[in-house]
Amino acid sequence: VPQRAWTVEQLRSEQLPKKDIIKFLQEHGSDSFLAEHKLLGNIKNVAKTANKDHLVTAYNHLFETKRFK
């Protein structure tokens, strides 16, 4: 089981690129989880459509539901 890579403050910070969060989610989330949160596909394309709040919610949801690969 992966550990949380970032704190809530870090997740919301401008310093953390959306692409980093997407990469983490794609590496650790199950396909059904990723599909549900519309996070499947090319990281660049996902970054265009997903806002930061959406990614933070998905990140927290992944750990709450433990839907890891």
Score class of each variant (00 low, 15 high):
1 V>K: 05
1 V>L: 12
1 V>A: 10
1 V>R: 06
1 V>H: 12
2 P>R: 04
2 P>A: 04
2 P>I: 07
2 P>T: 04
2 P>E: 04
2 P>Q: 04
3 Q>N: 10
3 Q>H: 12
3 Q>I: 12
3 Q>M: 08
4 R>S: 08
5 A>H: 15
5 A>D: 15
5 A>K: 15
7 T>S: 09
7 T>K: 03
7 T>W: 04
8 V>D: 15
8 V>C: 14
8 V>A: 11
9 E>Y: 03
9 E>M: 04
9 E>I: 04
9 E>D: 07
10 Q>N: 04
11 L>R: 01
11 L>H: 01
11 L>S: 02
11 L>D: 02
11 L>K: 01
11 L>P: 01
12 R>K: 13
12 R>G: 06
12 R>T: 11
12 R>L: 15
12 R>Y: 15
12 R>C: 15
13 S>D: 11
13 S>H: 05
13 S>Q: 05
14 E>W: 08
14 E>A: 14
14 E>C: 10
14 E>D: 14
14 E>M: 08
14 E>F: 08
15 Q>N: 12
15 Q>S: 13
15 Q>V: 07
15 Q>A: 13
15 Q>F: 10
16 L>I: 15
16 L>C: 15
16 L>Q: 03
16 L>P: 09
16 L>N: 03
17 P>V: 10
17 P>F: 08
17 P>M: 09
17 P>E: 11
18 K>V: 12
18 K>S: 14
18 K>H: 08
18 K>T: 12
19 K>P: 08
19 K>C: 15
19 K>A: 15
19 K>N: 13
20 D>H: 08
20 D>S: 10
21 I>S: 00
21 I>M: 03
21 I>T: 01
21 I>R: 00
21 I>G: 00
22 I>W: 03
22 I>N: 00
22 I>V: 11
23 K>L: 10
23 K>Y: 06
23 K>M: 10
24 F>H: 02
24 F>Y: 09
24 F>E: 03
24 F>M: 03
24 F>L: 02
24 F>V: 04
24 F>I: 02
25 L>E: 00
25 L>S: 00
25 L>F: 04
25 L>R: 00
25 L>I: 07
26 Q>E: 02
26 Q>A: 04
27 E>H: 09
27 E>S: 08
27 E>F: 07
28 H>R: 05
28 H>V: 10
29 G>M: 01
29 G>T: 01
29 G>P: 00
30 S>N: 10
30 S>A: 10
30 S>E: 10
30 S>V: 05
30 S>K: 05
31 D>T: 13
31 D>R: 15
31 D>C: 15
32 S>V: 08
32 S>I: 08
32 S>P: 08
33 F>D: 00
33 F>R: 00
34 L>V: 04
34 L>H: 01
34 L>Y: 01
35 A>S: 10
35 A>E: 11
35 A>D: 09
35 A>N: 09
35 A>Q: 10
36 E>P: 02
36 E>H: 09
37 H>Y: 14
37 H>K: 07
38 K>W: 09
38 K>E: 11
38 K>D: 12
38 K>T: 07
38 K>S: 11
39 L>N: 00
39 L>E: 00
39 L>K: 00
39 L>H: 00
39 L>Q: 00
39 L>I: 07
41 G>Q: 04
41 G>S: 05
41 G>E: 04
41 G>H: 05
41 G>K: 06
41 G>V: 03
42 N>E: 14
42 N>K: 13
42 N>I: 11
42 N>R: 13
43 I>D: 06
43 I>S: 07
43 I>G: 06
43 I>Y: 10
44 K>D: 15
44 K>P: 11
45 N>Y: 15
45 N>G: 11
45 N>K: 14
46 V>Y: 04
46 V>M: 07
46 V>D: 03
46 V>N: 04
46 V>T: 05
47 A>D: 09
47 A>R: 14
47 A>L: 12
47 A>Y: 07
48 K>F: 12
48 K>N: 12
48 K>T: 12
48 K>R: 14
49 T>A: 09
49 T>S: 09
50 A>M: 11
50 A>F: 08
50 A>I: 14
51 N>G: 10
51 N>S: 13
51 N>L: 08
51 N>V: 09
51 N>T: 12
52 K>S: 04
52 K>T: 06
52 K>R: 15
52 K>N: 05
52 K>W: 10
52 K>C: 09
53 D>N: 09
53 D>F: 06
53 D>G: 07
53 D>V: 06
54 H>F: 08
54 H>V: 10
54 H>T: 12
54 H>M: 13
54 H>A: 10
55 L>Q: 00
55 L>S: 01
55 L>R: 01
56 V>M: 05
56 V>H: 02
56 V>I: 15
57 T>C: 14
57 T>Y: 14
57 T>H: 13
57 T>L: 12
57 T>D: 13
58 A>Y: 04
58 A>P: 01
58 A>K: 02
59 Y>Q: 01
59 Y>P: 00
59 Y>M: 02
59 Y>T: 02
59 Y>I: 03
59 Y>N: 01
59 Y>G: 01
59 Y>F: 04
59 Y>K: 01
60 N>L: 15
60 N>A: 08
60 N>E: 15
60 N>W: 06
60 N>D: 11
61 H>V: 11
61 H>T: 13
61 H>M: 14
62 L>P: 00
62 L>T: 00
63 F>T: 01
63 F>C: 02
63 F>D: 01
63 F>L: 03
63 F>Y: 10
63 F>R: 02
64 E>A: 09
64 E>Q: 11
64 E>R: 08
65 T>V: 05
65 T>C: 15
65 T>K: 11
66 K>N: 09
66 K>D: 05
66 K>Q: 10
67 R>G: 07
67 R>C: 13
67 R>E: 07
67 R>V: 06
67 R>M: 10
68 F>I: 03
68 F>N: 02
68 F>R: 02
68 F>T: 04
69 K>S: 07
69 K>G: 06
69 K>W: 06
69 K>P: 05
